[in-house]
Structures are given as C-alpha cells and as structure tokens.
Amino acid sequence: MIFAFDIVILVFLVIAAIISLSVKDLLSASMIFGIYGFLICLLWAEMGAVDVAFTEASVGAGISAVLLVATVYNTKRKSSD
C-alpha cells in the first residue's frame, strides 16, 4: 500500500466518474466508463486485492464497456444530459 499512489488514483477515479456521467455522447461515456474500470483495477492492485484487480480488469474494463457500446450501437448515441 503506497499512500501517495492511493490518493492520485482516487482523485482520478472521482474525475473519471464525473466526466463519464456529464459527457453528452453516450459512446464517449461508455469508453470513459472503461477508463474508470481500469483506474479502479489499479486501485485494487495497489490495495493488495490482486484477485479482485484481475476480475475488475477483465470484467469491469473489458466486458462491461463492450456491453455498453453494444447497447449504444443498437439504440441512440445522443443523450440530453
């Protein structure tokens, strides 16, 4: 556990969460949500939870972003907010 690393990742995490919710293009929102997943995967690895980090790297950053993109492709890309 490295505390400076911890703080930096947590701050980026909050920024990524806010941006992915505030951007109007849903494809961008999905991709930034993927970035959020990778950041939180880094955070798990840094806190010593290697199994959780592995799961998050494959699931959170990989599959869930792809599922969101697939849904955006089949519905609408523009969002009102």
Binding site: A17, S20, L21, L26, A29, S30, F33, Y36, I40, G60, S64, L68, T71, V72, T75, S79, S80, D81
Partner: peptide, 16 residues
C-alpha cells in the same frame, strides 16, 4: 439523470 444508460453507469459507479 434523464438518460437510461447514464442511470446504469451511475448504478455501476454506486456498486464500485
């Protein structure tokens, strides 16, 4: 949020 996909992203953030 008004958009349903935005709501789902919010739900995932809540979960994490």
């Amino acid at each position: 949020k008004n958009n349903l996909i935005k709501k789902l992203i919010g739900l995932s953030i809540f979960q994490t």
